[in-house]
Simulated scan of single mutants.
Amino acid sequence: MHRVRCQRWVLGAAVVGLALNLRPALAAIGPLLDSIEAATGLSHTGLGLLTTWPVLVMGLCALGGRQLAGWLGERGGVGLGMALVCTASAARLGATGRHGLLLTALAAGVGIALVQTLLPAFIKRRFGANAGALIALYTTGIMAGAAIAAASAAGLSARWGWPAALAVWALPALFALPLWLWATRAAALPAPAAFAAAPAPRRSFRRNLRAWELMAFFGIGTGAYTLVLAWLPPFYTSLGWSPSAAGLLLGGLTLTEVAAGLAVSAWIGRFPDRRGPLLAVLALLIAGLACLIAAPASLALPACLLLGAGIGALFPLSLIVTLDHIDDPAEAGALAAFVQGGGYVIASLMPLLAGMLRDRFSDLVEAWIAMLAGAVLLLMLCLRFSPASYRRIDR
């Protein structure tokens, strides 16, 4: 019993270690956009692509999650994904032109996609009834990595230059990869077959209305995350803030996301009906966006706290309510891949749209207004997610 418990702790640590590496390649970009723009001459639309491309690839790879699981297996696929994240980050030390940055963004997106596509089914299978809590810790780890990257990017850039500030995130990935491989080695597992390729799910979700609703919910909610991640620091530097201060604001926001994610992990078991928590966090998100629109300078701190709490809780809740619909781990993983796949495609459009709007209007207020409309749509959509409605996934 003690050995099994120890193995679970090691596996949990490996999952969190992977999670910490799934956002620095994106989160470090926002505070450095002004420097990258000056060095490369990219337009705001082109700068938006540095976030849009990885998120789009994350979505497309997730849609092929069943094939990826069959070809690579969970252990090998996740390991390959982390190796790509490490390599893409390290390559940014020399790939400082516009094409090099876009290619490394693409490679990082593929690596992140492999990990995110294969890991939910692994968690569901290995941790059973405790999967919800570990999913929340996993998503919290993702946001913690983003917080560290966002808060430190400007300082690292001032000391070593922006290419090094991007490339330094190869180091934690270099640590997480062997930890994952060691934790999932056959000798450490009571049931080695659990890490074989996931069994093929028996059905497709492409004609299921509930699956599409879950996809839209995840995609629009994650769009708020990608929008803030990419454009909050440039928004505040355009208001006269220093890059360091704008980066710290994004870091504070993502730290609030971490706290919100931990709260979800601790308390979600008390809410079998997820609609109450979802409505509460959406209200926080809407209030934060209203602060950015109405008075971004004077309400910067409230906006940071409200957005962080709303986005930080919404991300794990979106995954949890998706996994709630199906008990079978393989089919739950397939549903999560479908939801995340289309959802990340939707979310990838928000940074690009914001860049286009900034090129057109020289401002980002219109992007915050568009996101506010999306959050109101989510309020209406989440009312449909009663536990009694979960059976709609079987239709």
Rank of each mutant, 00 (worst) to 15 (best):
M1T: 05
H2L: 13
R3H: 11
R23C: 06
L26F: 15
A27D: 06
S35C: 01
S43K: 08
V55I: 12
V57T: 14
M58F: 15
M58N: 06
G65F: 07
L80T: 05
A83Y: 05
T87D: 02
G94R: 10
L114D: 00
Q116N: 15
L118N: 05
F122Y: 07
F127L: 09
N130F: 03
A146E: 05
S152F: 11
A153K: 05
S157T: 03
A164V: 13
L177K: 05
R185Q: 14
A191W: 06
F205A: 07
R206D: 07
A224G: 04
L232Q: 15
F235K: 04
A283F: 08
L285Y: 09
L285R: 04
P296M: 07
L319I: 12
D327L: 12
A330N: 08
A330D: 12
E331T: 06
A334I: 01
L335E: 01
F338R: 03
Q340M: 15
Y344V: 08
M350R: 00
M356V: 08
D359I: 02
V365M: 04
I369V: 15
M371V: 10
L372W: 12
V376H: 07
V376D: 03
L378T: 02
L381K: 12
L383M: 11
F385D: 04
S389W: 10
R391Y: 07
R395Q: 12
